[in-house]
Amino acid sequence: MDFSFDVILRNMPYLLAGARWTLVLSLTGISLSVVLGVFICAARISAKGLLRRAAAVYISAFRGIPLLVQLLLFYYLLPEIGLDLPALAAAILAIGMCSAAYVAEILRGALQSIPAGQTEAAEALGIPPVALWRRILVPQALRLGLPSLVNELILLVKVSSLASVVGIGELTRVAQNITGQTYRPLEIYLAAAAVYFVINFTLSQLGRMAERRLRLD
């Protein structure tokens, strides 16, 4: 066996270009999932039974079906009902909506650890619910949930590799393309793995730093 570092070095620029799309997918995915997740979480704990049930169904469905299947559904099924999404939009939507189910549960856990007295204090002052959520509950829930949210982002970096299946030119897809030309799968896929690892390692360090800076004492 002849392991060739040369192949890796020559193709690294392409892999890194693919990694940019990996980051685009995972960062837009997490943004979408946090925004959606806040609303799903709010529905999940709302006083209205119908909202609660709808949120529970959403969470159970998106967590119960493999993301790859969801991705294919978004990619092939939505056009059939007249919604012709570009592949990139379908991928981001699938990743974000699936992740939102998990983010909703992360936020619910974080919310439950905020003492009820804080909400009572706001109610006693006459602070309306929207301001209560926007100013008091959500910022704290995001802060408390930050370690889990960073984990979720790292997870998204990994699952974004599935988008290669619908032809998005992210890191995994680029690696496949290069392999098709060079017939060096061992080197190329190991190199791709290394790039993924570096991204995720960096993210987890950044997460740890942010956590330290956001602590209030």
Binding site: I154, V157, V159, S164, T179, P185, Y196
Partner: peptide, 15 residues
């Protein structure tokens, strides 16, 4: 730190 799909590819195609 690495995706399952890449691990699978390393093993199946690179193996």
């Amino acid at each position: 730190g690495t995706p399952f799909m890449i691990q699978l590819f390393v093993l199946y195609y690179g193996g």
